[in-house]
Design a protein around this nucleic acid. Sequence first.
DNA 1: TTGTACGCGTTATCAA
DNA 2: TTGATAACGCGTACAA
Lengths: 351, 351
Amino acid sequence: MNDRLPIRRPTIAAVAASAGVSKATVSRYFNHEQLLTPDIAARVKKAIEELDYAPSPMAQALSRGRSRLIGLIVADITNPYSVAVLRGAEKACQEAGYLVMLFNLGNAIGREREAIDALAGYQVDGFILNTLGRGAGVMEALARNGKPAVLVDRRHAGMTADFVALDSADAMVAACEHLVGNGYRELMYVTEPKKGVSSRRERATAFSKYVSSHATRVAGQVFEHSEESESLLEDAMRALILRAKAAKDGRRAAVISGNAVVTLRIASMAAKCHWAFGADLGFLGFDDPEWASLIAPGLSAIAQPTDAIGRTAATCLIDRLHGEEAPPRQILLPGQLVVRGSSSARAGRTQ
Amino acid sequence: MNDRLPIRRPTIAAVAASAGVSKATVSRYFNHEQLLTPDIAARVKKAIEELDYAPSPMAQALSRGRSRLIGLIVADITNPYSVAVLRGAEKACQEAGYLVMLFNLGNAIGREREAIDALAGYQVDGFILNTLGRGAGVMEALARNGKPAVLVDRRHAGMTADFVALDSADAMVAACEHLVGNGYRELMYVTEPKKGVSSRRERATAFSKYVSSHATRVAGQVFEHSEESESLLEDAMRALILRAKAAKDGRRAAVISGNAVVTLRIASMAAKCHWAFGADLGFLGFDDPEWASLIAPGLSAIAQPTDAIGRTAATCLIDRLHGEEAPPRQILLPGQLVVRGSSSARAGRTQ
DNA sequence: TTGTACGCGTTATCAA
DNA sequence: TTGATAACGCGTACAA
C-alpha cells in the first residue's frame, strides 16, 4: 500500500489532452479565465475535476519567478518570543496563500548568509528576519538575491528595510512610571548582553534616559546579565535592596527584566534567596509568559503584541510583493502593561 | 539600492559559457565529478567561483522529482511540546541538508488534507506529522501523493507509518509508582479531552491499568478537562482531597496532569484555592516546562525527550528517503522523572 | 570523456 | 479566442 515512488500527479498536459485543448488553454483557465469561451472553459473545468488536477507550484515558480513562498529566519526558536511571532506570521501567510519555509539559526550567528542563500535558492519571494544582526553578510546576501525583507524586533544598522517591533521606548517609560508611581525609586534594569541587538540597546537606552531625566527622585542602573554572571547578578540585586533600605526615605527597590529569559533567571534567584516580590523587591518584566501569573504574587509585565507583530510583518512583506513601493516603514506596536502583585504599591500579597 | 526585480542569479548556462564547456559538463561537475578530466573540472570550478554560482534547488527538484524539502505539519504551534519537537526536527533536517516547510493547523482539524496537498505541491520529499488524526483524508492524501511520512506523538488508527513518541505507558507507571511510593494513594489523572488523540488515550489507559492492578492500596480516577469545565475540575479536586482526609489511614491525594497545558490550569487553580503542592496535594505532570521549578515547592514532572523525538522523527524519515525499506517502525523514547517538591514524601517545603 | 537534445510542469509570446 | 512554441534552470539518456 505504500508504493511511494512513481506516483505522479496529473499534469497540465493530461488535462489538455482529456479536454481536447492545448496546454495554453488550460493555463489560461487558471490565470486569465475571462479570455475563454464558456463552452471551452466548461470542458476544461470538467477535465480538471475528473483528473483532480492542481497546478504544480514548483513548476509555476520556475516559470514565473515567483513561488508564493516566504522565508522565515529566526535567531533562536527556543525563544518563546520568536515562536509567538512565528505563529502570527505563519497564519497571515497562510491566509494570503503563502507557505512558510523555516530556518532556525539556533543562535549560530554567522549562519545568516547561509540561511538567506538556502532559502533564496528555493525562490522564496521574500524574507522575514528575526536574527542577531551582526549585519555583515546579511545586507549583501539580501541585495544579491534581490528579494524584499522585513525585520522583526532587531533592526540592522544601516539596512533600509521595513521594520516591525514593540515600541520599546514607550513601553519602558510606561514601566518606569508605573513602578515609580508605586513607590519604587531604586531601579535596576537587567538585560541580556546588548551586543548588537537593537531591541536590547533601545530598551536600555530608554531606561537610562528615564532615570537621568528624573534623577532627583529616581536612581537606576543597567545590568548586563550573561549566563556566567549568575552570582554577580545576585550581588547586584542584594546591593539594590540594601540601598533602598539604607535611603531611609521609604523608597523601595525594583527590578525590570528585559525579556522572558531574564525573568526566568530572576524569578528562580528570588525563590532561592527568599525575596518576596512586591514586598522586598518590586518586579516588572518585558514579555508576559503564560506562567507570569503563577509566580507569587503574580509578575507584572509588559505584554508584547507578538501575534500582531508577526502578522504585521507578514502582511507588510506581502504588500511589498504585491507592488507596494513606499519607502521603508518603521512600525512600532504598543505593549500592554499588565499589573500584578509584583509591582504593588504596598507590601504584601495581592492575590 | 533596493531594486529587487530583475536580479538574476547566474545559471548553469552562464557557467558553461564562461568555462567554454556544455551545460551537461557543469551539471556533471556537481553530480558525477569522477567522470571529468581534471583539466576540465578545474576550468568549471574556476567559472563557478568567479560567477558565485549555485544550482537552483527548485529547478533541480523539478528535474529530479526530489526537492530536499520536508513538510512539517503541526496541530498547534501554540503548544510548547510541538515547538520543542519542531526544533529538534528542524535541526536534524538542516544537518542532513533538508529544509523544512511548516504548516500550522491552528487546531483546525479537517485542514489536514489541505496541508498535505499544499506541501505536496512543492514536491516535499516526505512529511512529519503531529496532527489531530481524525485520520479521514490523511491516509488518502498521503497515498495519493505517494510520499513517506512519520507520525509524532499522535498515531492514526490503521495508518501504517513510522511513529515516534514518548513511551507513555512506561512513563505513567513510573509516575504512579513514584507517587504511591511517597504515600499518595488517592490519585486523579487530568487530561484534555481524549477524543481521537492516541497519546492522551494511551496515558489514560495506562493510568487506569495501574490503578486497577493495585486496587487494594490505590484509588484513582480519570478526569477529562476541557476549557469550559473549570469549575467541575475544581470540585473534583476538592473532593479528591477530602476523600484522602476522610480515609483516616494517612493516605494522601495527588493529581497527575496529562500535559503542560493542563498543568498550567491546575497550578493556577491551586494558587487560587490556596492548596499547597506537596502538602495538601501531591502533583506530578507530564511535560517539564521551564517554569516547573518556579512554582513552589517545585513541580515534579515527566520530562519528555522532545528534542530527541523531533530529531528521531526527522532522521527516521530521511532514512526512508535514502531507500530504507524496513517495515513501519514504532519508536518509543523514555521519559525522565524529575522529582521536585510537589510530590515529596512528607508535607512541607522542599527547596 | 564530452556534447546534444529532450524532459520536468508551467507560463508567456506570437501567430493563426 | 485558441494553439504552437519557446523559455524557466536543471538532469540525463544517448550519441559522438
